[in-house]
Design a protein around this nucleic acid. Sequence first.
DNA 1: CCAAAAGTGTAACATTTGATACATTTGCGA
DNA 2: TCGCAAATGTATCAAATGTTACACTTTTGG
Lengths: 228, 228
Amino acid sequence: MDYSLLSRIPLFRGIPVAEIEHIFENAPSFEKMYKKGAVLAEQDEACNRLIILLSGKVRAEMTDPSGKVVKVEDILAPNPLAILFLFGTNSRFPVQATADEDSTALVIPKSSVLGILGKNEVLLKNYLDISADFASRLSQKLYFMSFRTIRQKISMFLLELSRNQASSTVQLGRTKSSLAEYFGVSRPSLERELSNMQHDGWIAIDKKEIAILKKESLVQLVRFGVVK
Amino acid sequence: MDYSLLSRIPLFRGIPVAEIEHIFENAPSFEKMYKKGAVLAEQDEACNRLIILLSGKVRAEMTDPSGKVVKVEDILAPNPLAILFLFGTNSRFPVQATADEDSTALVIPKSSVLGILGKNEVLLKNYLDISADFASRLSQKLYFMSFRTIRQKISMFLLELSRNQASSTVQLGRTKSSLAEYFGVSRPSLERELSNMQHDGWIAIDKKEIAILKKESLVQLVRFGVVK
DNA sequence: CCAAAAGTGTAACATTTGATACATTTGCGA
DNA sequence: TCGCAAATGTATCAAATGTTACACTTTTGG
């Protein structure tokens, strides 16, 4: 078992490898291999163990009641799965995790995790920080979803991207399709609104690169819901 | 300082009063009084302390960039404020907390919290459970917001209310105005859709009481997006 | 018990968005 | 580098939702 792998993930940041080894010395945990296509965790299965992906790639899919896949997230090694859902009064995996390629994972029973966290304050702080960051991202996405119109969402998104950045040109960094999905709107609607904003002279679109031409208009729209 | 108060909040559930006293023995923390109208925490202020409301009532308000109050939540004693935002890489209070009446609070510096959590495994588990539950609720609301039409949201909401309940009649338990706000839709639109569903024979509305008449239709709508 | 405030029900009309379709273009793996 | 799958850009039409307005009812606080 190569604990130096673990030292590279945020959960173990700031903890020397020797210390990590010591932490796991008396904590029941085991390594497990998964062939491509194997299921690491079923959706809605009781979440009674922490799974840390050591090598390979895992696909997390949320299936809605009709059986249609709603959301996909890729998890690359080395990284933990569903860290925030390990606890809670009715903790279940929110997604199905499937190996996208041959993978190995470190599996730690929930009871061990509690003991481990209590033993190392840095590890505890990391765990709490990761949980809080996750919750913050959820909160932000909710705030995001609360905007009424697509133009408002686009404006907010572009302003966020351009924050802490000298240039007024931003890189989307993802496909417009995936952006539409993130916004919860249809792809043609997103394209149309982007076109409209370009026609209005607010932005200039070049592939996945967008130049913000009238930042003031974007700001006003986000702040007041209308412009002028 | 009356630690028996603390034993009544979820964070200290399952911990004897004597043990709570012991926990706080060597942890820096202090009690503070707030007059009605006093501010316990500013929005976006660094979140470097855990505030546990011991008596009184606090109003949590989120202000959007234009200065308009977006959301209000009431916190009654005894309960902690913003427990999930204490940690995280850039932890700040997400709301402004103002005393709605004369209140007292126990204030614990962030560094003490870490030490306390490491010392008592039950407390640690409570903290993690509370965090996870909060995140789950956020997730669920996000799932909720992802429904396209108002009718789908209403259906999902009514099915959730009627779950684990013999009767097919549910009590809204809140005003329709606040429900519209929760859904992120305009009040007239919600009213109209409720009317439509009643005209279609799916539900029967009597004030804040709604009878589910065609549960199958609601289920189908939520599952497949369409009925028949 | 009264008056003011909050909540309700509904209608007409304007806007926004979704669904669908199709022609290109781009990017990636064999 | 070829070919195919994914992504893009755009148009048309239908459906859902927002906005505004107003009359009425219920709740609340003094």
